[in-house]
């Protein structure tokens, strides 16, 4: 249970970072932290004490306890999605840097109101 709570704290740390930081790159890092906390959370959901990898080694020989493979498959997909999001965010941040010569949010203010 402690691990779940720490995951949640990590999620909140990321959320705090997204809201308070004023640097584009730091915002992206904070978003990534949120994402990693969820990855950890999913892996924890699938964990079974003393569980083995959920792979059939020989025909018919099923290990007695295996970890839940479904969250692992899910999180692999979520990592791929996170990769795409982060790459796109970074690409846009770099282009913004070239237009404004700054990563500071308060300097990037073409849209107000």
């Amino acid at each position: 249970m402690v691990l779940f709570i720490m995951c949640f704290i990590l999620f909140l740390v990321g959320l705090y970072g997204v809201i308070t930081r004023r640097n584009l790159i730091k915002i992206i890092i904070a978003l990534s932290i949120m994402e990693y906390s969820l990855n950890l959370f999913f892996i924890l959901i699938g964990y079974r004490k003393g569980g083995e990898i959920p792979i059939l080694k020989d025909a018919g020989a099923v290990p007695p306890v295996v970890v839940d493979p479904l969250p692992q498959a899910m999180i692999l997909t979520a990592i791929v999605i996170g990769l795409a999001t982060t790459a796109l965010l970074l690409a846009i941040a770099i282009r913004l840097y070239r237009k404004y010569k700054t990563f500071d949010v308060s300097g990037i203010n073409a849209l107000k109101g």
Partner: peptide
């Protein structure tokens, strides 16, 4: 697909 996509992303940044 993943190899090509990652390489494309990397090359995109490098070219930029």
């Amino acid at each position: 697909e993943v190899a090509a996509a990652l390489l494309t992303i990397f090359l995109g940044f490098v070219i930029y």
